[in-house]
């Protein structure tokens, strides 16, 4: 008998399952191909748990990169997570023993699901985080076991993550009923696609969106002070 809260977490993470299985499998296949032992590849999905970060790590491993280089490159690639944390400071308050794990497991997809809850509870949020990593590790193990041999033609299944982001954007728009953050995202997102190299794209867009929101905050505060006088 599966409890309702686990069932709800499974239902919400199902699109992530569709995305993480093939992507995790792709990671497992690449890791084995560059000569990483299978248990080390599995350990990476367990203790690093960052999609692009793990692909970068395999490249650096294969290239024999130094540890400092690895640390700097990984932090550059993942620094958008700093902005994720900023917007979850309040929400994660009171999460207790679950909090360290939920911070550790904060991927793009988990962040998206956690910030899209209408009635947020730590119990559900924690299960969503946990299941997402379980899907990622399962995908990795499938990739390790199956290698490049295909079980079924899954080409295109990773579109599930794109679809998830589209749906969550619409949900956020319905809830917020304000155009501002979407205008900011269009401007920074499209500029980043046009101007920045692939590896700095997300950081550039999310970083400058945060900056614009800071400017907006300052502007609004100044106007309120002005009216108060």
């Amino acid at each position: 008998m599966i409890s309702p809260i686990w069932r709800e977490a499974a239902r919400q993470t199902l699109p992530v399952l569709f995305g993480y299985l093939p992507l995790g499998a792709a990671f497992g296949i690449v890791a084995i191909e560059v000569g990483i032992p299978w248990y080390a590849a599995a350990a990476m999905s367990l203790i690093i748990y960052a999609g692009a970060g793990q692909f970068l790590a395999t490249t650096l491993l294969a290239a024999g990169a130094g540890l400092t280089e690895v640390a700097v490159a990984t932090m550059m690639l993942n620094s958008r997570h700093i902005f994720y944390g900023l917007s979850l400071l309040k929400r994660f308050q009171g999460a207790g023993w679950r909090k360290p794990y939920m911070i550790f497991a904060l991927t793009d997809e988990t962040y998206s699901l956690l910030t899209s809850q209408t009635t947020y509870s730590h119990a559900l949020g924690f299960r969503i985080s946990l299941l997402n990593q379980l899907w990622w590790i399962s995908g990795t193990l499938i990739g390790i076991a199956v290698g490049s041999a295909q079980l079924f033609n899954s080409q295109g299944i990773e579109f599930a993550l794109t679809a998830l982001f589209i749906v969550l954007t619409l949900e956020q728009a319905k809830r917020l009923k304000q155009a501002l953050p979407f205008i900011i995202a269009l401007v920074t997102g499209l500029s980043a696609v046009l101007l920045l190299p692939e590896r700095h794209l997300l950081l550039g867009a999310i970083g400058s969106a945060s900056l614009l929101l800071l400017v907006h905050y300052r502007y609004r505060q100044r106007r309120e002070n002005h009216h108060a006088v």
Partner: peptide, 25 residues
């Protein structure tokens, strides 16, 4: 966590990030 700027970011950053992830995808 209760600073008005952090609350401001908590309110407006997630929808912006979501659309950026769509554009990225």
């Amino acid at each position: 966590a209760d600073h008005p700027l952090i609350l401001h970011l908590g309110r407006y950053l997630p929808p912006a990030v979501m659309l950026i992830l769509v554009i990225y995808a």
